[in-house]
Design a protein around this nucleic acid. Structure first.
Lengths: 339, 339
DNA sequence: CTGTTAGCGCTTTCAG
DNA sequence: CTGAAAGCGCTAACAG
């Protein structure tokens, strides 16, 4: 057991004031005279007193804590998002409680724990939320914001980049450059990001009178993308362009193409990704990709969460942020590029 | 304000039992009859009751929460560690509270917040801890485990890989292969990992009658490593081997060598890293490096933390885990390799 | 096995 | 401005 810690009572006794005076001393906007404050602060210092935020949370009904749910910390894109979110909330006086779930589907158990942990808000970084859970959050008036994932509920906020048009851009870019056998390596089939990127890609291809030459499943994972590349190029004919649903996979595709098939990128096969992770810019890859406004997405999500918390009510907002095509050298370009 | 939530009282009233019966129902090993349990559970379900863990923490003096302090989420090595740690603690029924600090030195403010947040333990992932803080943690009997960082205090536990011998291996490997101008790109000067890797490297070189040809500061950051490479190779002569204090920098070094100086690795310059991040194994790099037992380090750190928490007392232990040299093709090999 | 009774450490009216 | 008093929701003796 932990040894009894120093309480506001102890400080009060030493300072010769009431316990509530001590409390006021550590409350932002409470009226207290300078004299008392000094006595209290002095006593607090000698005793090494720190207000117990658990007790504070219990009474204020606010833990100043945000739950972050995510699944893929190995994808630098989400690692970076977490980094940003953490620093951002820290500045606002909130702490992050981290929950990792398996890639697909939410862990039912985990969501239960989140609810019990009395967080003030929930941030889902590309993790799925069941509508029954969304419902329960609303009932407890805990705001939820999904980043890059949608849910069948009109009560949670969503922030996403324009995945459809990102996919559309890739499709038209590839088609305009004269590619005729465009393949798609998908992300998680259940992920809205994947669905939208794919839809956009297919629609663009169709607009050029093309169909997707082949489609393989990659689940947003590097090693699955590697296998998908093998299926794509192992036969008699092979694609002349591959759109991987994210950069993480696209890098794996490029490596596989070069190493296992001695194919050059983009001379033999064009490769396009999605996200624009730092790695994509390295000379070894020079990956043509679609940049998601990472920073902006986090900022918007945080703002929505914070605003709802301050307001004390749930106001669901759907935001779609514009993407930015990034032209590098991993894909052959149309003669004159129309972005 | 949050709407009043369902409490154990409400459940008790509906189930027609006492409030403490409800409490027992949700406590692991409390004696309660099946009949009562069913009634309570039924009532709880219809009301959507979830025990408030804040209130529970207040009385049990245990938040079942671990603070994780780290600075570099962009380094995949630490992202991976966080991932592992998170899942590991989750299984044990603990939650992680994430605190990001600036790369060097601890944020004084952050450590204060950690103390107030009443965590049961603190895990420092390559983040520094001042001895005064270590002291304060001991006084509150909050166990602390540092991973890959040491602190001048005999009351906190430390888990690290054998950085000295890792560096030593690199030095002797490079020297044995006949390299004569070995350069070192350092990590953070204040980091114990950097100090030990460097010391080992220098000692090995000395054993071969060599000295470090040049030393540049990289602070464990990719872009600083790029600049360091420029300083190293921009002059009249250049090193024939570069030891970067971690893989993250080594990758940047290779890219820079190839792109900005048209140098081949390892024919013109050998490059060795440290960590063995997933990227290091990619065909584009095939980085010779020193693997740290990531999984094992996290497991050991978690065990120590959990054990101390269970025991209720601080027992500082220093663990040094063996490293594993990974031979790939980014560095020229000695004719016959003695590992 | 169950209900009653004290609090955990703090914030927050409410008088003075 | 300050102290006294009443809980926040729950656990943990303690009787019955």
């Amino acid at each position: 057991m932990k040894k009894r810690s120093v309480t506001s009572r102890d400080v009060a006794a030493l300072a010769g004031v009431s316990q509530s005076a001590v409390s006021r001393c550590f409350s932002p906007r409470a009226s207290i005279s300078d004299g008392t404050r000094e006595k209290v602060l002095a006593a607090a210092k000698t005793l090494g007193y720190r207000p117990n935020s658990i007790a504070r949370s219990l009474i204020t009904r606010s833990s100043r804590t945000i739950a972050v749910v995510m699944s893929q910390l190995d994808n630098p894109f989400y690692a970076q998002m977490l980094d940003r979110a953490s620093r951002l909330f820290q500045v606002k006086g909130y702490h992050l409680l981290l929950f990792m779930v398996s890639a697909d589907g939410e862990s039912k158990g985990v969501m239960g724990e989140i609810l019990q942990s009395q967080v003030d808000g929930i941030l889902m970084l590309s993790a799925s939320l069941s509508s029954s859970f969304a419902q329960e959050c609303v009932e407890r008036s805990i705001p939820v914001v999904l980043i890059n994932r949608t849910v069948d509920s009109d009560s949670v906020s969503q922030v996403a980049s324009d995945n459809y048009h990102g996919g559309y851009w890739v499709g038209s870019f590839l088609a305009a450059a004269g590619h005729e056998r465009c393949a798609f390596i998908s992300g998680l089939p259940s992920a809205s990001t994947n669905v939208h990127r794919r839809r956009g890609f297919l629609d663009a291809l169709a607009a050029y009178g093309l169909t997707c030459w082949a489609e393989e499943r990659g689940d947003y994972q590097a090693d699955m993308a590697r296998q998908a590349t093998h299926r794509l190029c192992g036969g008699d004919s092979r694609p002349d362009a591959i759109f991987a649903a994210n950069d993480h996979m696209a890098i794996a595709v490029i490596e596989t193409l070069r190493t296992d098939f001695s194919l050059r990128v983009p001379q033999d096969v064009s490769v396009v990704g999605f996200d624009d992770i730092p790695l994509a810019a390295l000379p070894s890859y020079r990956l043509t990709t679609v940049r998601q406004p990472l920073e902006e997405m986090v900022v918007q999500a945080a703002e929505q969460l914070l605003w709802q918390i301050a307001e004390g009510r749930i106001v669901a907002v759907n935001q779609t942020l514009p993407i930015v095509p990034i032209l590098r050298e991993s894909a052959r370009c149309p003669t004159d590029v129309h972005i």
